[in-house]
Design a protein around this nucleic acid. Structure first.
Lengths: 228, 228
DNA sequence: GCCCCTAAACTGGTATGGAAGATTGTCGAA
DNA sequence: TTCGACAATCTTCCATACCAGTTTAGGGGC
């Protein structure tokens, strides 16, 4: 399902769509902090529009699980909960394991020419300690694998789930990205070798790292988390 | 006697939410047909409210991929496309295979007492050729497995995906449900045996059947499908 | 008949005001 | 001080009006 969450004609972006994009980005990057209220009227002033398009943007964000609308009370950025993060991890892992199996089955020699440059760029980002670039390249690597085996649509869904995970990732930006790169190389190698089992194992190990980020994030910024 | 007023629900349903529920149901059950226009003002009259809550309901349905909003042109029930159905199948399969592996690993003897009654009820429905009841029990069986291994949340996501598949299912209600039941028994047995491989195989076979429904549905009601 | 143009009648997008509920702060009484 | 009543002020939800495109219906010219 569809892959287009925004089913409005591509010709001209509406105000509501623009606002969705901006707020989504700010929520994931923790500019808007978990628990923060997001008032319709306040955002209306900020974006220079009436409350209506803001309201519709917030409805969309609520559907995506990024804000919580409490009728006649308040709209807030949802707090991170251990459960929702682990749920998102389960779903991402399930979907991407399937992608790995498929990739290992379909791998072509020329895939190496596509994936290796991404890994090279990641290596540069690691040396430069450029965390934001690395994370963007991280996503690009995973998405490219899906694209190569023609299931890119799955990543549209993973993206939606990943909003939960990404907030945790932004809380621990200093994470050991060099290890991340090593894991990416393992995944790539398993695919080149058409070894589905190895690809699955490498991926599960890779995705599983989020749990340690979770613990670290909770320790650093407990206010961003929902009470247990 | 003290009676606890049921009317004090934790969150009183808003008009928009009520409308979402009604329209979603009508779309999945093909009461609103793929391609049908869903006019805001028309629905406003029907539900006895203004355009606003209808509009917000349609935004939610658009996010779920059930309607398509074309700015200043029309809002329509999205046609079924082969691609979107197969995409939904891929996602459901990936998620539920992971559930099967988990179920096979965690299976307890008492699970039999939970699942077998469902299968018995399904057998009754098969004999009575009661297709709607069978499909409801079908969903209940799959969801119960997820619940038993504590990942019921995954089924909330599968449900969203399944809206696409269910419309096809409603087009072919006379499908061979007796075979469906046999497949359910295979899945259950594999779980009782804690045989993850067998459970996975059985499930993939089971879910794969949608492709034949797809061909049959397209043959019967070509207007409901998007042009290739 | 056929075509083109235009105006009326749609469509969804936005602005604004008000209703209903929840929160907050103030004031007064014990 | 502590607590409760109450009003001011928040919030989201809904109704109404208007705006801007799009489609369609109906003439008029050929």
């Amino acid at each position: 399902m569809i892959t287009y969450a925004q089913t409005i004609s591509p010709s001209e972006e509406t105000n509501a769509e623009r606002i969705v994009a901006v707020l989504r980005d700010e929520i994931v990057r923790l500019v808007l902090k978990p628990g923060d209220p997001v008032s319709e009227s306040e955002m209306a002033v900020r974006f220079g529009v009436s409350r209506q398009p803001v309201r519709e943007a917030l409805i969309r964000l609520a559907e995506a699980g990024l804000v919580s609308v409490q009728a006649r009370k308040a709209t807030r950025v949802v707090r991170i909960s251990e459960k929702s993060v682990l749920n998102a991890k389960f779903i991402r892992e399930a979907l991407e394991v399937e992608i790995m199996r498929r990739a290992a089955g379909l791998a072509q020699p020329h895939w190496r020419d596509v994936l290796e440059p991404l890994l090279e760029q990641q290596a540069v980002a690691v040396l430069a300690k450029d965390l934001r670039t690395f994370h963007a390249l991280d996503d690009a690597f995973h998405r490219k694998i899906a694209e190569l085996c023609e299931v890119e649509f799955v990543w549209d869904l993973i993206d939606a789930q990943k909003a939960q995970l990404d907030r945790v990732r932004y809380m621990t930006l200093d994470a050991a990205i060099d290890i991340n790169l090593i894991e990416h190389r393992e995944i790539a190698q398993a695919i080149y070798d058409r070894d589905a089992g190895a690809a699955e194992t490498a991926l599960r190990n890779h995705v599983g790292k989020i749990t340690s980020h979770l613990a670290l994030g909770r320790q650093r910024l407990p206010d961003y988390f929902a009470p247990k």
